[in-house]
């Protein structure tokens, strides 16, 4: 399946792009992270500290164990600092 993967703030800076299409068979968010980290060092660098990261599936906050079936858009970012 093809998924849109988005990166924000320092995650975007470490990976070096704001979004990309990823062809993956990953079943969960954690599987997708493992696939990306195995690809290139910049992903491993961005995902080095998972507790410092948040994930959204189709624009809703989720957790790393969440399944990816039917998901079109995955976003990774640090804890939000709005207001």
């Amino acid at each position: 399946m093809k998924i849109d993967v988005l990166y924000f703030a320092w995650v975007r800076e470490r990976i070096g792009l704001p979004r990309e299409k990823v062809e993956t068979q990953a079943e969960t968010v954690a599987d997708l992270i493992a696939e990306l980290c195995a690809r290139e060092e910049r992903y491993a660098y961005a995902f080095a500290d998972l507790p410092a990261l948040r994930v959204a599936l189709d624009q809703e906050l989720a957790d790393f164990a969440a399944p990816l079936a039917g998901v079109r858009e995955v976003a990774f970012f640090p804890p939000m600092t709005g207001g």
Binding site: A9, M80, G82
Partner: peptide, 14 residues
């Protein structure tokens, strides 16, 4: 609203 905007609205400040 302020408490939730701070940590649940996807903004990042640099």
């Amino acid at each position: 609203l302020m408490d939730y905007l701070k940590s649940r609205a996807p903004f990042w400040k640099k």
